[in-house]
Design a protein around this nucleic acid. Sequence first.
DNA 1: CGGCTGCTTGAGCTCTATCAACCCCCGTGG
DNA 2: CCACGGGGGTTGATAGAGCTCAAGCAGCCG
Lengths: 217, 217
Amino acid sequence: MKINIHRPSHLIYELDDKISSFGSERSYVRGDMIYQKGEQPQGIYYITEGLVGLTDLSANGNEVMLRVFGHHFFFGHRSFIADEPYHATTICLKPTKLLYIPFRDVQQLCDEYPELLLHLTRSLAYELRIAEDKYNDLSGKAVMGRIIESLLFLKNRHPDYVWTRKEIGEFCGATTETVTRALTKLEKEGLITKRGREIDIHDENTLYQYSQEIDFS
Amino acid sequence: MKINIHRPSHLIYELDDKISSFGSERSYVRGDMIYQKGEQPQGIYYITEGLVGLTDLSANGNEVMLRVFGHHFFFGHRSFIADEPYHATTICLKPTKLLYIPFRDVQQLCDEYPELLLHLTRSLAYELRIAEDKYNDLSGKAVMGRIIESLLFLKNRHPDYVWTRKEIGEFCGATTETVTRALTKLEKEGLITKRGREIDIHDENTLYQYSQEIDFS
DNA sequence: CGGCTGCTTGAGCTCTATCAACCCCCGTGG
DNA sequence: CCACGGGGGTTGATAGAGCTCAAGCAGCCG
């Protein structure tokens, strides 16, 4: 997975004000479900504050974290655009405020701000690459590499959040135990420091370099 | 991965004639590379006949098949829309004729047929679900299940093509040997018949049922 | 018919999941 | 303010699914 240090280009802050006059504000706390796999979409969501994860259950009963959305992110539009029921469930990770925009208003919003549709399209194109890069990694990269890249990715995108070992594992296809072991090793190697549940990365580049070294014996 | 028995809804045959007046026709034979990972997109591609695979190399040197495109499919538009270099390489799987549409013409084409952009957007939304379903499967489903689903998916989408064990493996994250072993087992169980390199599925539903049974001991 | 690519089968090994036990941190309520 | 409960984290031992390596076979094209 290519790590994006900078915020994805498809975030357009200017829309913020415009959108706020549409749709209704909703609040969630950690653990709340926003929508559930299988439901029929009725609108799309725009986060003004907080963090949301898109998760699904895999065949062996493990949770899989497919994507994460922070503030200024839309979500729920994939299913809307594909005209499919939701293929996964969204869960609130930290206290979140968002705008729920029913389809009727999406239409109107798109008419008023034609760049919105293009923005959503771009975000799909972007997320598709991420998903396929993740697939590639899962198929051929050792856990250690996946864990490091996920750590860098998640902390870069959402720095002000303490990611749990479970969440990191769900994101990259590893168990909590394996993540723990990896982090312990990284700490011994002097690349990170554990501070309670927080993980301090000493130097992103060094850590990334380390993850690219093929052999973990 | 949810198997789609029917052709994906985002194929719009009516565009065929309209598009043919744009762009230039190109031909490829099996093994030809159409574009390569890292290159900067200059246009998009539309297949009039044949089969193309989007592949990448994983960390351990294995080939990964991310997507396949048949006739009436566009490809190369993800990178165009995301404004990124290609994140993977497209390889011709069977003799293919396609139309190459440089960006200048894409613009014009979109103006003339506004539904085209929406069509491309839908295909991205659709492919994103597939990619995430594949990720989920890879993360939690035993190989046997993945192989069966890939077999059903690939043969449904592109029935008139003899998929090799290697290709099936690359698509679902398994080695050629593992695919062979799985197919041998399926033949012993009376679910498929091997006819040379061709694989005859006795009954899709029975096979699918079998793949959903959790335990492969 | 020769050679190449793809397929098959076997043996062994390794990575990572699984199971289990324990600890630590933190928030909550008495 | 302390006790307690529970979620999260750590560590160890073990097992097994599927990969790797190897060697031979079969189908297919020139």
